[in-house]
Design a protein around this nucleic acid. Structure first.
Length: 565
RNA sequence: GGCCCCAUCGUCUAGAGGCCUAGGACAUCGGAUUUUCAGUCCGAGAACAGGGGUUCGACUCCCCUUGGGGUCACCA
């Protein structure tokens, strides 16, 4: 009966943002504001990389805080990490900064509830354990692991749910003292009230309840004195005054214990919002870093892995093994825009209406709400992400594109020849922006992510170092006996072309085709290969102009010289 | 297996009992533009898991079945 306390009385506050209990007469924001300012948190472990799914959870937490004018807190779950926390955290902070998810309290930021590292908050957990012990809401358990395992087996054999034996509960104070003095290991367990239920009104899942009679007593403190995640989280969330716990659905089951803990600690539980997780493309299983090899074979991810193997080595960043598509850093290093990633992530499990797909960061802040998060899991879709990305790329000015591409050109050592004297500057020098701008203009929408600029490397390499695409070369040059003669004549034609600009060139080439009674493609294709090594690419006449007359002629001659007499 | 969650085009989703002949986006396939590719424009195919109720009426509410998933630690 007790459990009623958790529910109706708190319903208004607990169900903030939940459409099921939403009273249309009261705006949601008002509802939240009437209770207390929203505080959300994201609590990453120092794993050495930022997972794309975790990033989406963090985004939702951040958006809810920003939308409600509340605060977003970063707390580090480093309870079982030893050293190198700093270096394992760096990529995580980097991901947050890259996407522009700033935190109001946390590492490097401080705040009223410092420290924000769980490893430094042990005194709080200790105090909470003692409080619970003193109140008889938790107990010291001397049961050995062997006994517990045996009980478990027994329960399984009898096909009844396993429950803690609670044998230690019948120990007298004297016996306990003896046990402790003799160094008998013990843990602290919460005394679960078995005669009732716990329930929450989840902001996305609605009413969920569990029967306490089916729950073993959870360990709060290990025999070595350290604390369990479930317990530390509750103590922290309560102490940090978190109002909305927004986290992945896998934590839903944990919530039963956590709510019990809030009650035992005489704290009112926050609103929970268990968001659906992201699954691997074409799968219903959680997208995880595990089974990288399996993910590599996933048809929906293969393109991303393959692209990594093409791009990252050129940037001296390893390959798809070092940076895989489940890591946020993959997208950063690949030259995605924060706007593209944010847009894509936000639309996984959340939508505004029946037609809006494009959201800027500010749009998201304005429109985001817990009530429009849906319940079923969402598959990661690399194609759709790329289409968001392409959209945001198309919104950039030419200068922004130049600045975005520059680091890639630099890292790939494509512009080294421009600076024979030494150091390559951090940003593209003024006297090179004109040409690069023309290149980018001609390249157009083919630039979807900044690293796509590497596909224009034919424009940067030496004329004699050009690599010809094998298939195209065979088909259009080797197997076309007239190709050589055409190219020879064309070389003479182009050498005479003045001015060397697109309209003039186009006119000259058309005239060339006509007077010789050729088909346009017979001329165009071999020319393309001579200039760029490929048959696909940007406009041919732009290509000619970009390369300039000298380099065009030099490339033509180079190709002709390779052909048999 | 126990407990819990979920179920609309291939994918992300809209749908709050009649606005549904189920809408949009990505992807796919046509067509147009064009020197290739990309883009752009136009168009096409493509879904309510099944069965029972409730109701004048069910994608929508209830129940069951089926399917999928999560979780059951002195992990986080």
């Amino acid at each position: 009966m007790d459990y009623n306390l958790v529910l109706p009385s708190h319903r208004g506050a607990l169900s903030t943002g939940c459409r099921r209990f939403w009273n249309p007469a009261i705006p949601i924001e008002m509802n939240a504001a009437m209770t207390r300012p929203v505080r959300t948190r994201f609590a990453p472990s120092p794993t050495g990389y930022m997972h794309i799914g975790g990033m989406r959870t963090a985004l939702f937490c951040w958006l809810w805080a920003r939308h409600t004018n509340g605060r977003f807190i970063l707390r580090i779950d480093d309870t079982d990490q030893e050293r190198n926390v700093e270096s394992a955290l760096a990529p995580i902070f980097r991901a947050f900064r890259w996407l522009g998810l700033d935190w109001d309290e946390g590492p490097e930021q401080g705040g009223p509830y410092t420290p924000y590292y769980q490893s430094q908050r042990g005194h709080l957990y200790q105090a909470a354990v003692e409080k619970l012990l003193a109140a008889g809401k938790a107990y010291r358990d001397f049961e050995t692991p062997e006994q517990i395992a045996a009980d478990r087996q027994q329960a399984e054999a009898n096909k009844v749910p396993y429950l803690s034996s609670r044998r230690s509960l019948s120990l007298t104070p004297d016996q306990i003292a003896v046990h402790q003095q003799s160094g008998q290991p013990s843990v602290v367990r919460l005394l679960v009230p078995r005669d009732r239920k716990v329930a929450i009104d989840d902001a996305v899942r609605g009413h969920v309840e569990w029967d306490c009679g089916l729950m073993p007593d959870p360990v709060l403190q290990r025999s070595n004195g350290s604390f369990l995640y479930n317990f530390a989280t509750v103590v922290d969330d309560a102490q940090l005054q978190i109002t909305h716990v927004i986290r992945a659905e896998e934590h839903l089951t944990n919530t039963a214990v956590q709510v019990l803990l809030y009650e035992a600690l005489e704290q009112s539980p926050p609103t929970f919002a268990h968001i659906p997780f992201i699954t691997a493309p074409g799968s219903t299983k959680k997208l995880s870093k595990r089974d990288l090899e399996k993910l590599r074979k996933n048809p929906g991810l293969q393109k991303l892995f393959d692209r990594a193997d093409v791009v990252f080595p050129q940037l001296s960043l390893g390959d798809s093994t070092t940076l895989s598509p489940v890591m946020v850093e993959y997208y950063e290093q690949m030259g995605y825009l924060p706007a593209g990633v944010l847009n894509g992530l936000a639309r996984l499990g959340w939508s505004l209406d029946d037609k809006t797909e494009i959201f800027s960061r500010d749009d998201l802040i304005r429109e985001f709400s817990l009530e429009r998060i849906n319940k079923s899991s969402a598959a990661f879709d690399a194609d759709k992400l790329l289409s968001f990305q392409a959209h945001w790329m198309s919104q950039l000015s030419l200068d922004e594109k130049i600045d975005g591409c520059w680091p890639f050109l630099k890292r790939a050592k494509l512009v080294q020849d421009w600076f024979p004297a030494g150091e390559i500057p951090e940003s593209c020098p003024v006297d090179r922006r004109g040409w690069l701008g023309e290149l980018l203009t001609a390249f157009g929408d083919r630039l979807k992510v900044f690293s796509d600029i590497l596909d224009t490397q034919d424009f940067f390499v030496a004329d004699t170092a050009l690599v010809y695409e094998e298939k195209a070369y065979q088909k259009k040059i080797v197997e076309a006996p007239e190709a050589k003669e055409i190219l020879q004549a064309l070389t003479i034609e182009l050498a005479a072309c003045q001015p060397f600009d697109a309209p003039t060139l186009e006119q000259r080439v058309h005239a060339f085709v006509e007077t010789r009674g050729l088909k346009f493609n017979q001329v165009i294709q071999p020319l393309r290969i001579a200039l760029t090594g490929k048959t696909a690419g940007m406009g041919l006449f732009e290509t000619l102009v970009l390369l300039g007359q000298d380099r065009c002629l030099s490339r033509l001659r180079h190709l002709i010289s390779r052909l048999p007499v």
